[in-house]
Design a protein around this nucleic acid. Structure first.
Lengths: 219, 219
DNA sequence: AATTCATGAGTCGGTAACTGTCATTTCGCT
DNA sequence: AGCGAAATGACAGTTACCGACTCATGAATT
C-alpha cells in the first residue's frame, strides 16, 4: 500500500510536474494569442505549436478551445464558492453573495498569479466580453455556477432549493446584475481590477432600490 | 418609378413566396429532426435533404445551425418587445415587463402558428434548455435582448441607459429570474404553454420579497 | 540495475460546420 | 421571346474535434 514516497499526485513525481507545466504553458500561450490576435483568428494548431506539442495533445488537456479560455476564471470561481460557504450564518443571503464576490476580487492575485499574470487575465476577460462566441460560453458557465450557488444559499437558509424558488430567484437576479456590471466594465476604458471591483460594488448596491416601483418619485 | 404591380417584396411575387416557403420548411424540418434525434446528432446535410435543397442553400437562409433553432423564438421576442413599447407610461417598470411577458405568452399561437405548430415549438424549447450548446446560445441571445429592453425601459422612465445603471440592473435581475423559471419548467414534466406561463408568473411574483434581507424571520 | 508496465504524446484519418467561387437555373419585367 | 438579376447547386477548402494506433518515458517491482 504505497510504501514510501509517491502519495500525492498533485505535486510529487516528475511526470505530474511536467504535466502541470504543459497545462500552464498551454493556458498562457492561448490567452496570449487570443488577446493578441483575437479568439477566432487563433487556431488550436497555433497554440499547440507555441508550446511545442501536437494538436492532439492540446485536446487531451482541454476538451475544447473554449475550455482553455476559461481555465483561469474557474480558479476565481472556486475562490468565490469557497468564500461563500464560509460566510457567517447570520449574514443576509444577498449580503453573503456580495461579500464573497468582493473577497474573490480582493485576493485574485493570490489565486491565479502562479499560473498567469493578473494583467493577462484581465485582458482575457475583456476579450471574452467582446467576443460573441465567448460571451455565450461565459453565460453558460455562469448558469452552471448559479446552480451551485443556489444550493449553497438554500443550505445556509435551511431550505430545499428544489421546493422553494427563492434561492434560485435571488441568485438569478444577482447573476443578472453581475453580468450587467461585467459588460459595463468591458465597454469602459479602465481595465484594472479595482475598476471592475468598484463597478460591481456599485451595481450591487442598486439591486434593492431598483425594484421599488416608482423611480421618478424616489429621488 | 416601379410602374405597376410588384411593390412589396414580403408577400408579392412567386419568387418571394417560394423563398418564404423554403425558409419555413427548413425551420420545421430542423425542429422536427432536432427534437426527434437531438441537436448535435442532426447534421445540416440531413436538414437540407429533408427539404430537398443543397447544404449551401441552407447556409444562405441561416448563417449557422444555431440560427435556425432560434428562428421561432425570435418571433416571440418580437411580440414581447412590441408589447413592451406600447405599455401605458404610468405602469411601474417591473410591472410593464411582467405584463409584456404575459401578453407574449397569451398570444403565442397567433404569433407562430403560421410557421410551426405551438406544440413543436414547446418541444424545441425544452430541447434547447437541455442541450448545453443551445443553452449557451439562448443565454447570449437573451443578453442581446436585454440590451434592447434596457433601452426601452430607460426611454419609458426618461433616463439615459448609458448614464443611469438602474435600467440595466432591473433588466438583468428580471432576465435572471426569467431564466430560472425557464429552467425549472424544462426540468419539470408539464411541457404546456399554460405551465410555463404560470411558472413564470409565480417566479416573477417572488422578485420583490426575495431581496428582503431575512427570509427566516419573514413568514 | 534490469525489467515490466502504465500513461502520456505523436501520427493519421475521418466527420461535420462553415465559407468562397463559379456555373446553372429560374423569375420578373419589357 | 428574351434579357438581367437573383436563387440555387456543385465543388473545393479550412478548422474544430474525435477515434484508433503506435511509440517513448517515467514509475513500480524484483
Amino acid at each position: 500500500m504505497t510504501p514510501s514516497t509517491p502519495r500525492e499526485s498533485a505535486l510529487c513525481g516528475l511526470r505530474a510536474r511536467k504535466k502541470q507545466r504543459t497545462r500552464d504553458a498551454l493556458i498562457r500561450a492561448a490567452l496570449e494569442l487570443f488577446t493578441a490576435q483575437g479568439y477566432e483568428a487563433t487556431t488550436v494548431d497555433e497554440i499547440a505549436a507555441a508550446v511545442d506539442v501536437s494538436q492532439r495533445t492540446f485536446f487531451r488537456y482541454f476538451s475544447n478551445k473554449e475550455e482553455v479560455t476559461f481555465a483561469v476564471q474557474e480558479m476565481v470561481e472556486a475562490r468565490f464558492l469557497d468564500e461563500l460557504s464560509h460566510r457567517p450564518a447570520d449574514e443576509a443571503p444577498l449580503t453573503a453573495l456580495r461579500s464573497s464576490v468582493m473577497a474573490a476580487w480582493d485576493d485574485i492575485a493570490a489565486s491565479i498569479e502562479p499560473i498567469v499574470p493578473v494583467e493577462l487575465h484581465m485582458r482575457a476577460y475583456q476579450m471574452i466580453e467582446s467576443t460573441p462566441a465567448l460571451i455565450a460560453a461565459h453565460l453558460r458557465r455562469s448558469c452552471d455556477l448559479e446552480e451551485e450557488v443556489a444550493r449553497l444559499i438554500a443550505r445556509r437558509e435551511g431550505l430545499d432549493a428544489d421546493l422553494d424558488p427563492r434561492p434560485r430567484v435571488l441568485v438569478g437576479a444577482f447573476n443578472g446584475v453581475m453580468r450587467a456590471a461585467g459588460k459595463a466594465w468591458s465597454e469602459g476604458d479602465d481595465f484594472t481590477v479595482t475598476s471592475i471591483r468598484e463597478l460591481t460594488r456599485s451595481y450591487l448596491d442598486h439591486i434593492g432600490p431598483v425594484l421599488d416601483d416608482n423611480w421618478r418619485a424616489v429621488r
